[in-house]
């Protein structure tokens, strides 16, 4: 256990964030001959908003997929809650308290908003098939408390009007919001957001930023997000990791990243889409 795991950290706006909850060490991920991630290490502290930025193809989504268990790196370690994590399947990682959203929305399109978010509570449902068939009382109680949580999230995200709507029919911005709701329903320790604002207009981006900050502040959820919009990132992130061509080229507070010459040359200096 490293020293960093216990000390706290004070952000630029004077907020004190907690000890490290997730640390990736010397991660290298290859697909055949292509190296997607090369020797990257960074940490995520409890209660912070951590941003991962970088040009297209920098390996940001791959990094998220490593944390979430979709990819297994050839080298390196992932430490979660001060324990070295053994190679796990994504569904096991969900049970550990890591939830996520996807770059290209991955919702259950045939289900209603309510059912989608309810499915997000999967890890909190204990009763199996048989229990549900025979112990009707206990299962009903559980269903009820899960429903209550889901309704809270629906209120929080201001999507009451679309509760019963099939999500496949919703506009893009609202689908992104439902997906966030589904991830929140798991009450995660760590929330991974893969480009939560991609393809949104200014108003939708403002809404989404507000939701992310509210989640972080009200529920104390740790957030790690990938985002392209530099303005948004600099506004909402406590600390930023910068990646380029699979390597880490910067790590620090938004102010430090702004001044970092390597980052400016590689990323901010040139136009980004």
């Amino acid at each position: 256990m490293s020293l960093k795991a216990v000390e706290t950290f004070v952000t630029e706006d004077g907020r004190s964030i907690g000890p490290v909850i997730l640390e990736v060490k010397d991660i290298t991920l290859k697909f055949g001959g292509v190296t997607a991630i090369q020797n990257i290490s960074f940490d995520i502290r409890g209660g912070e908003v951590r941003a991962i930025i970088g040009p297209n193809g920098a390996g940001k989504s791959s990094m998220l997929n490593v944390i979430n268990g979709f990819y297994h790196p050839q080298e390196g370690e992932v430490w979660f809650k001060n324990e070295l994590r053994a190679p796990m399947k994504p569904y096991q990682i969900a049970y550990q308290g890591i939830a996520r959203t996807f770059q290209n929305i991955a919702l259950f399109k045939g289900m209603s908003t309510l059912d989608n978010i309810m499915t997000g509570r999967f890890t909190h449902m204990s009763s199996g098939i048989f229990a549900q068939a025979w112990w009707k009382g206990a299962a009903e109680k559980e269903e009820f408390s899960n429903r209550e949580k889901v309704e809270q999230i629906i209120d929080f995200l201001e999507i009451q009007k679309i509760r019963k709507t099939e999500v496949g029919r919703l506009p893009y911005g609202l689908q992104k919001r439902v997906e966030l709701g589904r991830a929140l329903a798991a009450e995660p320790r760590l929330l991974l957001l893969d480009e939560p604002m991609a393809g949104m207009n200014v108003e939708e981006k403002e809404d989404m930023s507000r939701f992310i900050l509210d989640v972080n502040e009200e529920f104390g959820t740790t957030v790690a997000l990938i985002e392209h919009d530099m303005g948004v990132v600099m506004d909402i992130a406590d600390r930023v990791v910068v990646m380029d061509y699979g390597k880490k080229i910067g790590d620090g507070t938004p102010e430090e990243i702004r001044k970092n010459q390597v980052v400016i040359d590689a990323y901010l200096g040139i136009s980004h889409d």
Partner: peptide, 22 residues
């Protein structure tokens, strides 16, 4: 049922189903 909902979830999207713990 929980399992039934999981079944429909898998039918719709494998990745998303994995990410919620199925």
């Amino acid at each position: 049922t929980k399992m039934g909902r999981a079944l429909r979830a898998v039918a719709d999207d494998h990745q998303a189903a994995l990410s919620v713990g199925i």
